[in-house]
Design a protein around this nucleic acid. Sequence first.
RNA 1: GCCCGGAUGGCGGAACUGGUAGACGCGCCGGACUCAAAAUCCGGUGGUGGUGACACCGUGUGGGUUCGAUUCCCUCUCCGGGCACCA
Length: 865
Amino acid sequence: MQERYEPAAVEADAQHYWDQARCFEAKEDSTREKYYCLSMFPYPSGRLHMGHVRNYTIGDVVSRYMRMNGKNVLQPMGWDAFGLPAENAAMANNVPPAKWTLDNIANMKAQFKSLGFALDWSREVTTCQPEYYRWNQWLFLRMLEKGVAYLKTGSVNWDPVDKTVLANEQVIDGRGWRTGALVEKREIPMYYLKITAYAEDLLDSLSHMPGWPERVRAMQANWIGKSVGVRLGFPYDIEGLGAGVLHAFTTRADTLMGVTFCAVAPEHPLAEHAAREHPKLAAFLEECKRGPAIESELATQEKKGMSTGLTVRHPISGEAIAVWVGNYVLMSYGDGAVMGVPAHDERDFEFAKKYHLPIKPVIDVAGREYSTHQWAPWYAEHGRCINSGVYDGLEYEAAINAVAADLQRMNLGEKQTTWRLRDWGISRQRYWGCPIPMIHCVACGAVPVPDDQLPVVLPVDLVPDGSGNPLNKHEAFLKVACPRCGAEARRETDTMDTFVDSSWYFLRYACPDNDKSMLDARVQYWLPADQYIGGIEHAILHLLYSRFWTRFMRDLGMVGFKEPFANLFTQGMVLNEVFFRKPESGRAQYFNPAEVEVTLDATAQRRIAVLRADGEEVESGGVVTMSKSKNNGIDPQALVDEFGADTARLFTMFAAPPEQTLEWSDEGVQGAYRFIKRLWKAVHEHVTLGAGMPLDKAELNDDQRTLRRQAHQTLTKMSDDIGRRRTFNTAIAAAMELLNALAKYPQRSPQDRSVIQEALEIAVLGLSPIIPHVTHALWHALGHERALIDEPWMAVDATALQTSTITLVVQVNGKLRGHITVAVGADQDTIRAAALADPHAQKFVAAAPVRKVIIVPGKLINIVV
RNA sequence: GCCCGGAUGGCGGAACUGGUAGACGCGCCGGACUCAAAAUCCGGUGGUGGUGACACCGUGUGGGUUCGAUUCCCUCUCCGGGCACCA
């Protein structure tokens, strides 16, 4: 064994072994228990970033651990290869998105390999290849047949200068990012997927998914947003419209008698009707249309409204109710109208104050004093109806039931369940995506592409120029015969949302080579995925879409399950300090932390950051998410080149628990490297002493027994931390403690050496899922023929854990005052007496009478005086 | 604005089910080795008071429940994620 640890040689050797032995190529085997460990596939942006390293190291640790525990493990990888960045890069460099994307994939794949992940590359899936996306198209056609996909108009951001549709990300302060032109909303026909048809089941299933984090389930439940309430009708007879009913949904039908106005969305038919005769209102509607499309901006903008001049009738009292337009009312939720009850809804209160509308309290909350001048949070609480005619005296639920029953009788309302969840619009007016397989014929309308003409292949040599989808100018793609009548027709040029690609890629890993069908029987063997790992930022959309997609496939009989991911793990983001200089005028210039030297000043009080290039100081902007815009990313490759993949892996697993954010630290990396060197040295020192003797468990002295106990306690903890808790940081800490104990262990007798051998084996094997390369080498050095990856996980020796005495904590009034040692299995009276006799405790007990003694078995005694 | 998280020494973090706050690592201080430095090794390291044994204080803020609270409940502050066309 070599004395020096040389990561490059060690890692090349281990990777070569895994490659030639094809260790990670998974094969279906019905006699073995499978374990499908899935990580969210990356967008091929060009380089791996630390977030990727973190995500895939977690998956790799789990995979390797499960493999050593006898599972038939599948850990695949692929590429989420369609999307906007490729079009931007194409424009910047005049390279087709396809070439840019495939080059990036080649680069990143090499990086993946250098990190030593146990991936089955024979199942690689790339979403921009027709072999993959043809099945997007195929399934879309099945959805169309079932009415799950349908056509409807939807609103998009329109840049009037570039004459193109913009993503929300490309709209900055209401203006196009390239042109600076004011962005307009445009209504265009788009395809939608009826995810709302599955809303109830998507919600209900959440409570039967113990393998998902509580917070993700809560976020999804709130996103689906089930509300049970009443759909009310306000009848009207309006000139030019005739008689009709304005519908509004409410969860607070008990406050119906407090309605003093109604507010409708700017796109509501009543608003549009009124605007025809009302230029100021028309201008207001225009203003709303130019307003933000993003919910966060809608919700924070100033609440504005304007009267339509129209009135509707209160369904119970018959009073005239003014109809207003409110910029905060969403056309997409409920009926696009709300009843205004300023006395019991904060937003309505604000609105009423601003436009001097009446406020009428109709709920008595525990006899408290209501004031129409100022809002108080309790105004929205449940209570007893007052000022409500026949409903006076009724409580919340009784009042809602009574109102619903009365309205139903008048045919002006009914109980209704409303969902916040909206159908999923998948049409994108963009080039670099999966073509929607439709053909537009003058005579036949929108005609689906027949299955035998799939895939509709996306031309790969186009370069977008910012002025809309280049497919619209591509004659060879556009021109096609109508499948129905044969006349010349035009191909659909919209492509699919990339969330479609990522909604089922995890199924395709089971059968990537199947060119006859989308899925096959192998899916049933591997899925559902036993562990899914990815960023918390995907907690809602991607995961919800995947759950929906799987349900639709289940309904078609393509899969036998509806939840694709049995267990979900959401890892935190990777952060780093930002350094910048801001000139007097103009934008801040950001410097990569790799180019900055941070030192302490003479008093060690203040940190000084200096740019290496010019020796001048730079400012620190705190620790934030690694991003291109802040130039604070760390290239994992530089780390691998300098310290090796094992150090990169160890650092990311040790620096923080995997669910929390992780702060980059150069010193932390050094610490990880130092630990690996210490481990190497410990094994080296041990094996240079030559072969030991077999362990004789019956002939151990106290020191040997103590070390053995610690080694097996470490094994217990590492197994639990890796296998159950997924707290890799504490598993590593336990291994460090064991190594510290070994360093202090004094003896070198043959029996000592056999105990040390066992402890080193536990440390090396236990760490192998995290730092697989160096442990591969050390395992051989410890005298094993077989490669470590093929070894089973070690079993804990229960006899090594046994002790005869136990130390208990003695508290007085909950404060730590002393320790006592008692025999294992001592009875309560003995423990109580020993605790009271403890001299440290005595000092505090002597002065006052003992009122109570609480004994927590195996832990502590609390004496209450 | 709404939904979901988070806050513990100089720093990253540990304390798993309400039971010893600060494991492990980094940094710093002292020492060994060295002509010297790096590397390595050994010891110390929450704050205040005390020569010391030890005592008191201490887990973002303010309150509550409990024999006992970093952990449970309420309030507030700050930070992060998501908000449907970034992925």
